[in-house]
């Protein structure tokens, strides 16, 4: 039996394998996918001596529990949460050793939504189109974790401790998203553009890996109907017929017919991925 593996004891609400995604295939209809908070995933990997693009676990709200079959180096980052091995508290946000057979518990997020679990050697599930990411829109990559699943690990490299005191940005109390208007801002009234950049929205509980859905004032259009399908970028603020903006996250569709009023800076999307339902959101224009 291969002991370079971990057993999933508790999969949690939604835990997926993620790396930095599979960009480069949008012309075939393949979403980029990848960790929603890529800075957190990269940092967790560096803490355990992995390449930044190694596959990690992305949890949602209530963590997960794993039992490694051999002693491993683990770092849990992203959303802060309690971490325990066989009930003994371990520090969050730094590299720790978890002995073979111990129960590693990644607890409920204290703030934010998505914790990242990096293990030395990375999760070595079979890559699809160069990535191990689970794409929930199109079903590419491994299925979301299930209780009892066994995840293979890669060979751990010798590098360790390349980061001492990592700067983990805390999840936001208010999410400020810097946008550039367009490409379809001319589909909206001047009042709608003012509304977008001056009024407050709230993160909706209908948000997921595909998009950050928002509750708040609807954006009025100057023309009805749909566009002919056009390419969509990460961070696109798409406005469906109900007028409530949706910010496209990693599993977003590659094309769409609803107008994109603005695009959020990529650097702000990690915070968007950590914003719990009810978090206030403001859009500010930036050039």
């Amino acid at each position: 039996m291969n002991d370079r593996a971990v057993v999933v004891v508790r999969a949690g609400a939604l835990t997926t394998v993620q790396d930095l995604g599979r960009p480069g295939y949008a012309h075939l209809g393949v979403p980029r996918s990848g960790a929603l908070d890529p800075a957190a995933a990269r940092l967790a990997n560096r803490l355990v001596g992995n390449e930044e693009g190694a596959a990690v676990l992305e949890t949602t709200v209530n963590g997960c529990a794993l039992r490694p079959r051999r002693t491993v180096t683990v770092a849990v980052g992203g959303a802060p949460c309690p971490v325990r091995a066989d009930g003994r508290p371990l520090p969050w946000g730094t590299a720790v050793r978890v002995p073979a057979g111990a129960l590693l518990e990644v607890g409920q997020a204290v703030r934010g939504l998505r914790s990242y679990v990096a293990v030395g050697g990375g999760f070595a599930v079979d890559p699809v189109l160069g990535s191990r990411s689970t794409d929930l829109l199109s079903g590419l990559g491994p299925a979301p974790l299930a209780d009892g699943a066994v995840l293979p690990l890669g060979a751990a490299t010798a590098v360790r401790g390349s980061v001492d005191a990592p700067p983990w940005p805390g999840p936001p109390d208010e999410l400020v998203l810097r946008v550039r208007l367009g490409p379809r801002d001319d589909w909206f009234t001047a009042g709608a553009l003012r509304t977008l950049t001056t009024r407050a929205y709230l993160v909706s509980s209908a948000s997921n890996r595909i998009g950050l859905r928002l509750d708040g004032p609807s954006l009025e259009r100057v023309r009805p109907g749909e566009l002919p399908s056009e390419g969509m970028v990460l961070g696109a603020v798409q406005v469906p017929p109900d007028g409530r903006p949706v910010v496209f996250l990693a599993d977003h569709p590659t094309t769409g017919g609803y107008p994109v009023v603005a695009v959020v800076r990529a650097a702000d999307l990690g915070a968007a991925a950590q914003a719990a339902p009810g978090t206030p959101v403001r859009f500010v224009t930036a050039r």
Partner: peptide
Amino acid sequence: EIVPAARTVLLD
């Protein structure tokens, strides 16, 4: 990415 669509091409 170079993504053609109905009447557009996206370059990312």
